[in-house]
Simulated scan of single mutants.
Amino acid sequence: MASPAFDDYLKTVYAHTEWQDSPITPSQLAAALGIAPSSVTEMVKKLSAAGLVSHQPYGAVRLTDAGLERALGMVRRHRLIETWLVQEFGYAWHEVHDEAEVLEHTISDRLLEGINARLGHPRFDPHGDAIPDSRGHVERVPFVLLADAQPGHTGRVLRVSDRDPELLQALEDAGITVGVELTASADGILLGDAPIPLPQGAADAVWLTGQKISDVQ
């Protein structure tokens, strides 16, 4: 069943657990999509009936195998389009999310694969998010959210959330972009040996390479 609304829900459920383990609740899903909880309840029932999510009343929403496959297809579309807009049209990384939200529902599979070939089959989008391949495989490396990084932890910026365009601009102004090496400190972060101010909200929007202490104990 072709449905942009279905696809938006599935993509949001997938994204919620991409960088942490807790499944999404209906209230979190409503907040992420900016819609009323009652609307989410009705749509989740439809998704469940279509075999795309599993959900018990008042419980979390989880993707089924079929739902995951469809979500990964939409994620692939979204991230390839974001990469295309940056590399081919000169968009800044804080400008592409909303454009991709529209285009991902309109371009054909043929055009999408043409974009992929044109870009040289990129593995990551401008924000560091992995682009699933045509089989739905996603590349993974160990990561730690900056807010969870212990003082002294050094890693390169692996991913930056694209949810807040103003924060993306502030991070770029501070020199914090994908691939830059940072060190967490008790007072903030170091870029090389120099302390730099951390924009508000950045600690919960930046992921570094490495692992949390709890993951290795």
Rank of each mutant, 00 (worst) to 15 (best):
D162R: 15
L208W: 03
V178L: 06
E172K: 14
L167N: 02
E181Y: 12
I196L: 07
I189Y: 06
L158P: 00
I189P: 02
A170Q: 13
G210T: 07
P165E: 08
Q150C: 00
L191Y: 05
V180Y: 10
L171Q: 05
D187N: 13
A203R: 15
G179V: 02
K212I: 00
A174E: 07
Q150A: 14
G188N: 11
A184C: 06
I176T: 06
V206F: 04
V157E: 10
V160C: 08
D164C: 04
E172S: 13
A147T: 02
G188T: 06
Q211D: 04
D173G: 00
I189Q: 08
I189A: 13
V157A: 11
D187A: 14
V178Y: 12
R163T: 08
A149S: 12
Q169C: 00
A184N: 04
D148I: 00
S185V: 10
P151R: 15
G152W: 04
G188H: 10
A174M: 08
Q211N: 08
R159E: 05
P197H: 11
I196G: 07
D162W: 08
V206W: 03
S161R: 15
P197I: 01
A170E: 09
E172W: 07
L167H: 02
D173V: 05
D173I: 02
V180F: 07
I189C: 09
G210W: 12
T183V: 03
S185A: 13
A194G: 00
G179A: 07
A205R: 11
P151H: 13
V157Q: 12
V206H: 06
H153A: 10
A170T: 01
Q200I: 01
A194C: 03
A149N: 10
L208G: 01
G152M: 08
D187G: 07
A184G: 03
A202L: 05
A194F: 09
G210H: 13
G152Q: 11
A202K: 02
Q150D: 11
D187Y: 12
L191Q: 12
L171M: 07
L182F: 08
Q200F: 09
G201D: 05
E172L: 04
A186C: 00
K212W: 05
V160T: 13
A205K: 07
T177E: 13
P165M: 09
G201Q: 03
G175R: 12
G201T: 02
I196Y: 06
I189N: 08
L171N: 03
R156V: 01
D193K: 15
P195N: 10
Q211A: 12
G179K: 13
D148F: 10
T183I: 04
R159H: 15
D164W: 10
L158Y: 14
A170K: 12
G192S: 10
Q169M: 11
H153N: 06
R159N: 11
K212F: 00
V157H: 14
L182P: 01
P197R: 14
Q169G: 07
S161Y: 11
D193P: 00
V178K: 15
T154S: 15
P195E: 07
P151W: 09
L171F: 06
Q211W: 12
G210I: 04
H153S: 10
Q169K: 15
A147C: 00
A174W: 04
I176G: 09
T154Y: 08
E181Q: 14
L190A: 06
A149H: 11
P197G: 06
